[in-house]
């Protein structure tokens, strides 16, 4: 089965998302809401990954060969200025989007596998990433006119 591969991938993607949040938080300290919110999101994603680890462990023995280029890449550097911030947030949005849909897919598989523990974890973690997406979306929408029309 490929679920074990997806569980490992998901935990890794949450950790990549956490690291990317921290990079954005640390790189845009003059934007306090980004700094503190993304720091909080990083902790949340790390907790999501930690909650998944023991389940992934449980499935580890049933692992099949995995396809290439499975793992998403995180942000390696932040971009300067208002446009840079907007673009960095878009990267986070893309990454969080992948994590969120993966939780949905894993939740579906969990239902099929009648795995109550995984159903519970996916049901709690997925919506948290949904909330991250909602925040990122709101923040980008608010910043877009100023950034695209008048930012120096």
């Amino acid at each position: 089965m490929h679920l074990p591969t997806y569980l490992t991938m998901l935990a890794a993607a949450e950790r990549t998302l956490a690291a990317s949040h921290l990079r954005v938080a640390g790189g845009h300290t003059d934007e306090p809401d980004v700094r503190y919110t993304c720091t909080g999101f990083a902790a949340q994603s790390t907790r999501n990954a930690d909650a998944l680890d023991p389940i992934a462990e449980r499935y580890a023995g049933r692992r099949q060969a995995e396809p290439d280029r499975l793992h998403p890449r995180g942000l390696t550097a932040v971009r300067p200025g208002p446009v840079g911030l907007l673009r960095d947030l878009q990267d986070l949005y893309q990454l969080a989007g992948l994590v969120e849909i993966t939780w949905t897919l894993v939740g579906q598989a969990a239902a099929g596998a009648r795995d109550r523990e995984l159903i519970g974890v996916a049901g709690a973690s997925g919506p948290r990433i949904g909330a991250q997406l909602a925040w990122l979306r709101m923040r980008m929408k608010a910043a877009a006119p100023q950034t695209l029309l008048v930012a120096p």
């Binding site: 929408k141 608010a142 120096p152």
Partner: peptide
């Protein structure tokens, strides 16, 4: 009306960057 009215902290940030 494309997003909520800008809050003071953001306004001062825009003024800092010169876009206001």
């Amino acid at each position: 009306h494309w997003s909520p009215p800008t809050h003071a902290n953001a306004m001062f940030r825009y003024a800092e960057q010169g876009s206001i």
